[in-house]
Amino acid sequence: MYHELTQERIKSRRRARIISLVVTVVLAVVCGLAVNAYRRSALEQGAASVREAILESANHCCAVEGSYPTSLGYLERNYGLVVNHNDYVITYEAYAGNVAPTVVVIPR
C-alpha cells in the first residue's frame, strides 16, 4: 500500500535528522574533552613520578657518596636514571653538596 508523505511528515523527519546530528556533534565534543582531560591528567601524574624518581636518585647518591649530585646528567650517567626529556622540561638546581636539590618537572 502506498502512503503519500505529507508536509507535516516531511518536517518531522527533517527535525529528527537535525536533532540526531546535533546530539552526535555534542557527544563527539564531550568525548574529545574527556580524552584531553585524561591525557593532561596522565602527563601531570607522570611529571610527579619523574620528580620523585629524580629526588630518590639524588638521595641515593647522597647516601653513597656523602653529597648531593651537582647535575641531573651526573645521576643519568652514574646512577642509571632515565628521563624522557622530550615529554618533560626539568629544572635541577643544586646549591651545595649538603643541601637537597630543587627539582621542578613540567609536562610539555
Rank of each mutant, 00 (worst) to 15 (best):
M1W: 01
M1P: 08
Y2P: 00
H3A: 08
H3Y: 03
E4H: 09
E4I: 02
E4R: 13
L5E: 01
L5P: 02
T6E: 06
T6P: 07
E8M: 14
E8N: 14
E8C: 11
E8R: 08
E8L: 02
K11V: 04
R15N: 09
R15V: 14
R17P: 06
I18A: 11
I19Q: 10
I19R: 02
L21K: 03
L21F: 04
V22A: 15
V23P: 01
V23I: 10
T24D: 07
T24R: 05
V26D: 00
V26I: 12
V29H: 05
V30D: 00
V30P: 13
C31A: 11
G32I: 04
G32N: 04
A34L: 05
A34P: 10
A34D: 01
A34T: 09
A34V: 11
Y38E: 09
A42H: 12
L43A: 12
E44G: 03
Q45D: 14
Q45S: 15
Q45F: 07
G46A: 09
A47Q: 03
A47F: 03
R51P: 07
A53D: 09
L55R: 07
E56Y: 11
H60L: 15
C61R: 05
C62L: 08
S67H: 05
S67G: 05
S67T: 08
Y68D: 04
Y68Q: 00
Y68F: 02
P69K: 06
P69G: 04
S71V: 11
G73L: 15
G73S: 15
G73H: 10
Y74D: 15
L75V: 10
L75A: 12
R77I: 04
R77G: 08
Y79W: 09
G80L: 12
G80T: 04
L81C: 06
L81I: 11
V82K: 10
V82Y: 13
N86I: 00
D87S: 03
D87G: 01
D87N: 02
Y88F: 08
Y88M: 01
V89M: 00
V89H: 03
I90M: 08
I90Y: 02
I90R: 05
Y92G: 13
A96S: 15
A96V: 11
N98T: 14
N98D: 12
A100V: 06
P101K: 06
